[in-house]
């Protein structure tokens, strides 16, 4: 991806750019996603359909 020059967009913060080092942050995040999905697997496998269907909200606003 081309680097946006700072003179063109003076508000851009370099700190906001995602980590570009291969592996590193993206890999750590992918691992974290897997760990999280492992953790809630039991919840997701347990009667998900019945759970979702039983949530009905009467109108508001």
């Amino acid at each position: 991806m081309p680097q946006v020059s700072s003179s063109e967009h003076p508000y851009d913060e370099p700190d906001d750019a995602p980590a570009t080092s291969p592996g590193g942050v993206p890999q750590a995040q992918a691992n974290a996603v897997d760990a999280l999905l492992d953790e809630i697997d039991v919840t997701l496998q347990q009667n998900a359909e019945q759970f979702v269907r039983s949530f009905v909200q009467k109108g508001g606003e």
Partner: peptide
């Protein structure tokens, strides 16, 4: 439905 459940979570 597991995805709808994940969405609610």
């Amino acid at each position: 439905p597991r995805i709808a459940r994940l969405d609610l979570a």
